[in-house]
Design a protein around this nucleic acid. Structure first.
Lengths: 240, 240
DNA sequence: CAGTGGTCTAGACCACGGT
DNA sequence: CCGTGGTCTAGACCACTGA
């Protein structure tokens, strides 16, 4: 990491994750941290703001910064985390089956989702995620080919995000997710071990690069009993 | 509003919402905004950071700040928004039926969820949410009585949050939500118009005050076809 | 090259909590 | 009262973009 405030953030966040700083204890005050790290107060405040934003601490005016007792190991699906990153973090026996990989022309639905024209090229990737030997998730990805010129089987079986960020040098910035529950389709029943469930949880994501270009649409279909989404949210500042 | 940067944030956010600033256009540069508002650059940057955080703009180094084309009117369940605030914003015909309001002693499950002891008092509030005449959501709330000494039927039919924030002067700060899908219980079938669905979407929330005290546990059970959760997320900065 | 946003500093004053 | 975090300022240097 390059910047001072990110270094400090990572150090403190790591200490909280490792349990070296206990929940409900107080962090050193900003002025003490200024001395400890020999940086300006603003730099400390940037680091603390990040910690607050990601749910590590709660700052209380006049009192100090307190470590929040949130069990972070629950299931961190919030934010943007790829399946590979996630399963590694959770220590699950995960496996990916590549079902389909081809270039297609978009139908009306995809044109709308990816905001593209009818003769643009799209990478379509269909993958099945196995966890502990059970086919749990059906992942359908659509990439705008103008951002991702080539894709191979090996990349899809590994992590597409890793390829995109490290090899292509693209920077993924933000996403908009939508979670609904739908009746299982024939395709769901064909590919997944639904064990009698007739519904699936559907997560639709639009994923953007740091230049605000929409470059991926993803549809992730989960067996309902194996789905869990955890969200940490701060109360919004009001308007008007 | 008190602070300069919040004023500026609200003004720009409002202009984006009203469509006075169009998506994919560029905001004035930070230096121009400094002149326009006669404030320091840091104050402008605070406002812009908020706008970025809440998905209004994307800042691109060397280029400028661009208004993001995200349809914000979709369904803003992310963040902390009460049912009343939400239904008003969406212009839905919503109605609340108060089913139960009493003080109870916690069972083991509640003691764990609210992190309290067995002889602490708990407010239990059960409400059914009707939308367009259909019973869609079963809302079960549990408040630690030491924070909320009294509750009346009128408050529960209106907005408990409003009462808590405005009358009691408590400040709600953050929440941790968990979304799962479960088989419908007898209680679900009794209170809701499930229309044959045998599953419900369950949202469990732990809600904290700004002094980091846990004061409410909420369980919200939704008919699956009427449930939708939208999340805007920025890619997390990595650790290590 | 000039203009942009990103980081960092040093100092000031304020509002709040606890003593 | 002092120590805390919250806001605000003015100025510096850097990295990146685009002409």
């Amino acid at each position: 990491m390059n910047t001072k405030y990110l270094n400090i953030y990572n150090e403190i966040a790591g200490n909280i994750e490792k349990g070296e700083i206990k929940p409900n204890t107080k962090l050193p005050s900003e002025n003490e941290l200024v001395k400890k790290y020999s940086v300006s107060r603003d730099t400390i405040r940037k680091a603390l703001n990040l910690l607050e934003q990601y749910g590590y601490i709660q700052k209380i005016r006049g009192k100090g910064s307190y470590v929040i007792d949130i069990n972070r190991f629950d299931f961190p699906v919030s934010g943007l985390v790829s399946f590979k990153e996630l399963s590694e973090k959770m220590g699950m026996k995960a496996n990916t089956i590549l079902e389909e990989l081809q270039i297609i022309k978009p139908d009306k639905y995809l044109m709308n989702q990816l905001k593209i024209k009818e003769n643009d090229d799209i990478w379509k990737v269909v993958r099945i995620r196995e966890i502990d030997g059970k086919k749990i998730i059906l992942d359908k990805d659509f990439f705008n080919k103008s951002f991702v010129p080539s894709l191979t089987e090996d990349i899809c079986k590994d992590s597409i995000y890793e390829y995109i960020e490290n090899k292509l040098g693209l920077c993924i910035s933000f996403s908009k997710k939508e979670i609904t529950v739908e009746n299982a389709t024939k395709e769901d029943k064909k590919y997944l071990d639904l064990q009698g469930y007739n519904m699936v949880v559907v997560v639709k994501s639009h994923i953007y690069l740091d230049d605000a270009n929409l470059f991926q649409y993803n549809e992730s279909r989960h067996r309902p009993d194996k789905f869990k989404f955890v969200d940490f949210a701060r109360r919004k500042k009001l308007m008007e």
